[in-house]
Amino acid sequence: MLDFFQSIGGFIMTPLYYVISAILVGFHKVWGAAFGPETGVAWVLSIICLTLVIRILLIPLFVKQIKSSRNMQLIQPKVKELQKKYGHDREKLAQETMALYKETGTNPFASCLPIILQMPIFLALFRLIDQAAKKPGSPKGLMTEQLNRQFGDAVFLGAKISDTFLSTDLIGVRILAAVLVLSMTATTFLTQRQLMSKNMPADALSGPYAQQQKLLLYVLPLVFAVGGIAFPVGVLFYWTTSNLWTMGQQFYVIRNNPAPGTPAFKAKQDRDKAKAARKGVKPDAEVSQEDLDAAEAARVEQERRTAQRQQPKRQTRSQRKKP
């Protein structure tokens, strides 16, 4: 049975080793030419660039996550109504809630998808670094023995890329690892806190969805803090960079496209009004000028499509002959 699961794991991870190592080696050629192929700077920058490539590829999933999270926030009043109506019947409540999710195109677990999909990539990078440090003569993916030795022995700020907080007694290495673990933990917490404090309406701050968000707020940083002391320095750079990307991406979305009824939405309305006032425009008190422009554009587009769908009335032969 163990061999079966190992074969399944190898079947899944082997393609990832090739993909991750191909991106890593490609960037290492660039940074290695600039700083030297054996330097820690070249390998750390390659890991950071790898992270950015992965996060760019995950942007469509992030957009889906944002839409689903917004739907979860907006349907909370309906969820509460269902809880009041079917609170005595758990099976019926579950059926009606799932029907509501399906009707609104909402996935209650969408907020976890980016983390779930990144875990195999995280494990692949972890194994590449571990292999480079412990078995440089058995490279994985597109890593060669020479690259493995460079990767495993590369030093950045006094610490090897493959060092962990637990694997060394050197104070400098432990300080660097601790700083990276704290950075990874803090950015995880702040990203989730940013979502809850800025882009969740008051109705969404209670109930099952709020409990799920609070669980993510406190449990995820704790998991990363405990597990982080066993992560190699290179993996800590990957995850911290990924968290910083998430914070910036989420900040941009919340600022420019916030959910209605949230503090971020009110802040955007205030900015739109101030901008309109500077230009001498007086938009509606409750709707920003951008919303009005979008609505007008949608109306024009709908009229255009309607006109295209309209077919000319059929005429008799005598009518067609008339001038």
Rank of each mutant, 00 (worst) to 15 (best):
L61D: 04
K80L: 07
F35K: 09
A33W: 14
E91R: 11
P37F: 06
S46T: 02
I75C: 00
E38K: 13
P77K: 08
V44H: 02
V63F: 11
I48M: 09
V79M: 15
K85N: 08
I56A: 15
P60M: 02
Q73N: 13
I48D: 02
L24E: 02
A42D: 04
Q83E: 15
L45F: 14
G105C: 07
S69M: 14
I75M: 09
G105W: 02
V79E: 09
D89H: 10
A99P: 01
D89Q: 13
E38I: 07
I48R: 05
A94S: 10
Q83V: 01
S69Y: 09
S46A: 10
T97Q: 14
F62S: 13
A99I: 05
I66P: 00
P60H: 01
K29W: 10
K92P: 04
Y101D: 01
E103H: 09
K80W: 11
L45E: 03
I48S: 05
G40Y: 00
F62C: 02
P108G: 08
L52R: 09
N107T: 02
P77D: 10
L50W: 05
V25D: 03
R70G: 07
L50C: 09
D89M: 08
T104M: 10
Y101K: 05
Q95W: 07
K64N: 11
L61H: 04
P77S: 11
G26Q: 11
P108A: 01
T39A: 05
F62P: 00
I56Y: 12
T51N: 12
K102Q: 12
K92H: 12
E91V: 07
F35S: 05
K84G: 15
E38S: 14
G32H: 01
A34L: 13
T106G: 03
L93R: 03
L82M: 12
R55D: 03
D89Y: 08
L50A: 04
A99V: 08
L58F: 15
W31D: 00
D89T: 08
I75P: 00
H28W: 04
G87C: 09
K80D: 15
L82A: 09
T106L: 01
K64C: 00
R70W: 11
G32R: 00
G40I: 05
K85H: 06
H28Q: 12
A99K: 14
F27Q: 06
M72W: 07
E103V: 03
L50M: 12
V41L: 13
V79S: 05
L52K: 07
M98E: 12
C49H: 08
K78M: 09
E81Q: 15
Y86F: 15
H88G: 04
L93H: 02
V63Y: 13
H88R: 13
L93W: 08
K64L: 06
G36H: 09
Q65L: 14
A94E: 06
K29S: 14
A42I: 01
E91Q: 15
P108S: 04
K84N: 15
Q83F: 03
E103Q: 14
I56K: 10
M72P: 01
V25T: 14
E91Y: 12
W31I: 01
V25A: 06
I75R: 00
I66K: 07
V30W: 12
E103C: 02
A33E: 04
M98P: 03
Q95L: 10
H28V: 06
F27M: 08
A42F: 10
L93I: 04
V30Y: 11
L52V: 14
F35D: 02
T104V: 05
K80E: 15
E96A: 14
R90S: 14
P108Y: 09
K84F: 07
